[in-house]
Design a protein around this nucleic acid. Structure first.
Length: 968
RNA sequence: GCGGGGGUGGCCGAGCUAGGUCAAAGGCGCGGGACUGAGGAUCCCGUGGCGUAGGCCUGCGUGGGUUCAAAUCCCACCCCCCGCACCA
């Protein structure tokens, strides 16, 4: 356990609990329609309760909360609700694994989640598991201080919600946006179910790819020898067929044709929708030495032995293209050297020896036989050499992008390989020579039940047709009107809309809502979470009046969300009082459209885009969502991804125990700009904690000072400076928050504010003397900080004598009249002088007394002239500057010096200088104490025009903004 | 492969879509000092290299180019990350 400033941590913890209770008691975050105020409705993607939330989740929710709090302080009536997404299969899978006492999972539950043993035992039922994590997550959100209206909470398996989703699907169905069709899915043979990543051994995502099945024939009897390939275009270059003599094949009737395939392939063909009847078994040996016919070229080609052919991949039969496939080339070469083995299988070695690779693709930089080139280039020894894989990738890649089909490829001659591949495939399928086939390409993948995962083609799958062009156009329109934060991510949304096709929207198992017209299907999770923001607006009534699923039908939702029908009549039919129906309708219309939708960037390519699609499908244009805000992830210290299996996730509540809510919130929001990932660093969390403590201490020491308005204060240079800086930070923090640039906002509201206040205290030397000023500043500061660190802000706010909540206090507004450019420039000037003094002092390694000579008056006029010229011409070209300056006699007389100054500016750029020697002199005098303190030097200020003491004639080199220095 | 986003000082991370005050904000880390019984707390100071006067040199993935002037604009190249679905 890390040691922290223990006392303050404890204090902060009690502060946190106190205000969370107070907020709840006073119901300040419960939002009801209030026509007198502008409304702001924002939502975050609801959590999936199959694990505690970790720090990473906290980023999105903290961001939304800070934004909600900011808007609330700006005077908006803000609704920030929350719900829980139970839909889907992972909860089922996890409960099942717990029931089976899966060791790895138990370890995670114990050691990473820190769930007590006796609790774990109760989580073997899916619903109990979900309820447990639901409460855990909810508690975490409360402890983080999120300003959520909990009256609207629901889960996606609540019957009223199910009715809502059914209504949505009826709408989509009516509009013709639901279609049915074939669809390949990863499938476990023994569970007889689709499998996702969470169902597989080692959490592997099964990757399905479409390949091409080509039908070669036995020359002697016409039996089909199907092969599977990624490269159908290479059928022109096939020299032989590979069959594994060591495995058993089956001769089977497949959709009325006689095929030879491995037994495993026969099984997989069945899953892919073929009617397969096994006729007899036969050893691979029997085919060796016989001949097959290439269905495209009609060439007779030999069938040769190859032990590398797997029964579990493809059909167990492989076509050989030695000219363009390194593996085939290597296998053939190996075989040529192995006459004895060939004879053993009854193959005439001469036949093999005569086989030459056929060249069908030409490609720049390679010979006719690219496979051979690659093998030689990479020094691949044989087919078992791991470098063979590399050679394959090389040849496939180059040929695909740069290769051109040769004249021996018929009508495909001259085509680019990438085009020919598609054309050949389509044509051959058309001609009945090829068929489509699916493979798990990263296989073998195993289900948690230990069975292998295969591809099943589901014939009657339901889809939401996101490929519908008219629908896409509406989605694009909505996107165009929407504010996307950050703007950079808009292009991804555009790309996603273009790319979307029909999406399978239901599955056979899992929690969720049954498809209303076909209840054997459960609507899957990405499809039942697209318009639920609307449901929040009525969930309050559902909860309050205990409205049941049975009371709800399409008529009710049509009325509430679309304004159709008569509430009195609907009330009679459903038993929901008419005034409640009307109130729901009004509440919906008050909050909708949604003002801001928040989520992590992983949801851009699915949820967030579906959210747009479904809104435009269901709701009228004026209720389309207004804004989407997307944020990056949180990574572990060192940039490592957080994951359960690595054990490096920090559950939110654990983080809370160690650092409290405010530091975590500041860390998550202040760590990086919106879209980039941010690191969770315990060290930074601790330093934030320390900084908050400092602020708290400051508040303690000034809290009893009299309240005085800025306008009634007598201000010295430092007062004016800090007041001006504060206005700037208000402006910057506000602007950043408006744009959801949380990092910038935290910089200004916290770090930069802190830096300036520290500098101010340092300069004025005494907190007590300036207590009223500091109290007034804290009053502003604490409000700027409240969206990010609401607990400590609430505490300090009250310490300062307020009896309202800072959470709903008025957001500070900058008073432009208090911004003082002149003073800020003056302090910049002083800082530069201090820098210079320190540097000179450092070089001298000694010195106690510094003489500072403020430059001659004419040099200020020169600077002014130069600045004017730059402003006019927009250039800093020394030639132009000289020409402009030398036109005036008053500068001409100092020709040499002028040249030097101009060159210095052109080279190094402009610096800060004040308008006259008198001004610089005055500022130096006013801040002498500060300069002396900062440099440890005794300061003597003089004029370069008439220096009193200048033994080295340093005064001559003085420049505006850069007074000359002499240290002794 | 397709689509999207990046490469900044020991690290994180601004700036780069109005090119100049950027050796580059802020933080972390590190070094030194103060305070203290002690401090992992706080406060100062320093933190690319060189330099006995505020300067010079090198620098923002690599190589070119535009410009009086480039981390910022243009071109080429190298490298890295993310998504590609039915899964939350």
């Amino acid at each position: 356990m890390l040691f922290l400033s223990g006392e303050f941590l404890n204090l902060l913890r009690s502060i946190q609990e106190k205000w969370q209770k107070e907020w709840e008691r006073s119901r300040i975050f419960e939002a009801d329609p209030d026509p007198s105020k502008p409304k702001f409705f924002l939502t975050v993607a609801y959590p999936y309760p199959d694990a505690p939330q970790h720090i990473g989740h906290g980023r999105t929710y903290s961001l939304a909360d800070a934004y909600a709090r900011f808007k609330r302080m700006q005077g908006y009536n803000v609704l920030f609700p929350m719900a829980f997404h139970y839909t889907g299969t992972p909860i089922l899978a996890i409960a099942k694994r717990l029931a089976q006492e899966d060791k790895e999972l138990l370890r995670i539950f114990r050691d990473v989640f820190h769930i007590p043993e006796e609790v774990i035992r109760t989580l073997t039922e899916p619903i109990k598991l979900a309820r447990y994590f639901h409460e855990e997550i909810k508690q975490g959100m409360k402890e983080m201080g999120y300003s959520i209206d909990w009256r609207r909470e629901f889960t996606t398996i609540d019957p009223p919600y199910n009715k809502f989703i059914m209504w949505q699907f009826h709408k989509l169905h009516e509009k013709g946006l639901i279609i049915r069709g074939r669809h390949p899915v990863p499938w476990c043979i023994s569970c007889d179910n689709a499998v996702g990543q969470h169902d597989t051994l080692g959490d592997v995502e099964p990757e399905i790819e479409e390949v091409t099945l080509l039908k070669f024939k036995m020359a002697e009897n016409g039996m089909i020898l199907p092969v599977v390939t990624f490269r159908p275009e290479t059928i022109f270059g096939v020299t032989n067929i590979w069959v594994n003599p060591e495995i058993e094949y089956v001769v089977a009737d497949v959709n009325g044709e006689t095929w030879v395939v491995s037994e495993d392939a026969a099984m997989r063909l069945k899953y892919q929708g073929r009617k397969v009847k096994e006729l007899r078994r036969v050893s691979g040996r029997e085919f060796i030495g016989k001949e097959a016919i290439n269905p495209v070229t009609n060439d007779r080609i030999p069938i040769l032995p190859a032990t590398f052919v797997s029964a579990e991949y493809g059909t167990g039969i492989v076509m050989s293209v030695p000219g363009h496939a390194p593996y085939d080339y290597l296998a053939l070469e190996d075989l040529k050297k192995n006459a004895d083995m060939l004879r053993e299988y009854g193959v005439d070695p001469e036949v093999v020896k005569r086989i030459e690779p056929i060249s069908i693709i030409s490609i720049e930089g390679f010979s006719d036989i690219p496979a051979k080139d690659a093998v030689e280039q990479l020094g691949v020894k044989n087919q078992n050499d791991p470098k063979a894989e590399e050679a394959t990738k090389l040849v496939y890649g180059k040929e695909f992008h740069m290769g051109v089909m040769k004249s021996n490829t018929g009508k495909y001659a001259g085509l680019k390989v990438s085009e020919a591949k598609e054309r050949v495939r389509e044509d051959l399928i058309e001609e009945g020579i090829a068929e489509e086939f699916y493979e798990i390409v990263n296989g073998p993948v195993y289900c948690r039940c230990m069975s292998r995962v295969v591809v099943k083609v589901v014939e009657d799958q339901w889809f939401i047709n996101y490929g519908d062009e008219n629908w896409k156009e509406l989605a694009r329109e909505c996107l165009r009107e929407m504010r996307i934060v950050p703007e950079e991510i808009r292009r991804e949304f555009e790309a996603c809309i273009d790319w979307l096709k029909a999406k399978a929207c239901a599955r056979r198992s899992g929690l969720g809502t049954p498809l209303p017209w076909d209840p054997n299907w459960i609507i899957e999770s990405l499809s039942d979470s697209t318009i639920y923001m609307a449901y929040y607006t009525i969930a309050k009534y559902i909860n309050q009046y205990g409205i049941k699923g049975d009371n709800l039908n399409d008529e009710v939702f049509d009325y509430i969300f679309l304004g159709k029908g008569d509430p009195k009549e609907i009330s009679e039919r459903t038993g929901i009082p008419a005034d409640v129906l009307k109130a729901m309708r009004e509440e919906f219309l008050y909050w909708y459209p949604l003002d801001s939708r928040h989520s992590g960037r992983d949801l851009v390519w699915n949820h967030l885009t579906f959210f747009i699609f479904n809104h435009v499908a269901i709701f009228p244009r004026e209720l389309w969502p207004k804004q989407i805000v997307v944020n990056g992830f949180v990574v572990a210290e060192g940039g490592q991804k957080m994951s359960k299996s690595l054990g490096n996730i920090i559950p939110i509540r654990e983080g809370l125990r160690e650092y409290c809510a405010d530091p975590i919130r500041l860390l998550l929001l202040g760590g990086a700009e919106l879209l980039s990932d941010t690191e969770f660093s315990p060290k930074i969390a601790r330093s934030i904690l320390a900084r908050l403590e400092k602020m708290y201490r400051l508040a303690q020491s000034v809290k009893d000072a009299p309240n005085i308005e800025f306008s009634d204060m007598e201000m010295d240079i430092w007062d004016k400076w800090i007041v001006s800086r504060v206005q700037r930070h208000i402006i910057e923090a506000t602007r950043a928050l408006e744009d959801c640039r949380m990092r910038d906002a935290v910089q200004h509201a916290f770090y930069l504010m802190d830096a300036d206040v520290s500098k101010y205290i340092d300069a004025v030397g005494d907190v007590k003397r300036k207590a009223s000023m500091l109290k007034k500043i804290l009053d502003i500061w604490v409000r700027l900080l409240a969206p990010f660190a609401p607990h400590i802000s609430e505490e300090i706010w009250h310490m300062l004598g307020n009896d309202t909540f800072v959470s709903v206090a008025k957001w500070p507004e900058a008073d432009k009249r208090l911004i003082n450019d002149r003073i800020e420039k003056a302090i910049e000037f002083i800082d530069a002088v201090i820098e210079d003094l320190k540097e000179v002092r450092k070089l001298l390694k000694k010195g106690e007394r510094a003489h500072i000579y403020v430059a001659h008056g004419w040099k200020y006029e020169l600077m002014k002239k130069i600045e004017e010229t730059i402003a006019e011409t927009g250039k800093m070209d020394p030639k132009i500057l000289m020409r402009s300056v030398m036109r005036e006699a008053k500068f001409k007389q100092f020709g040499k010096e002028v040249t030097k100054i101009v060159q210095q500016i052109a080279k190094g750029g402009m610096w800060t200088w004040l308008e006259s020697p008198e001004e610089e002199m005055k500022v130096l005098e006013e801040t002498t104490t500060y300069i002396e303190k900062a440099t440890g030097l005794k300061i003597n200020i003089q004029s370069a025009e008439k220096p009193e003491y200048d033994p080295r004639r340093r005064s001559q080199v003085a420049l505006p903004g850069k007074p000359a220095i002499y240290i002794e």
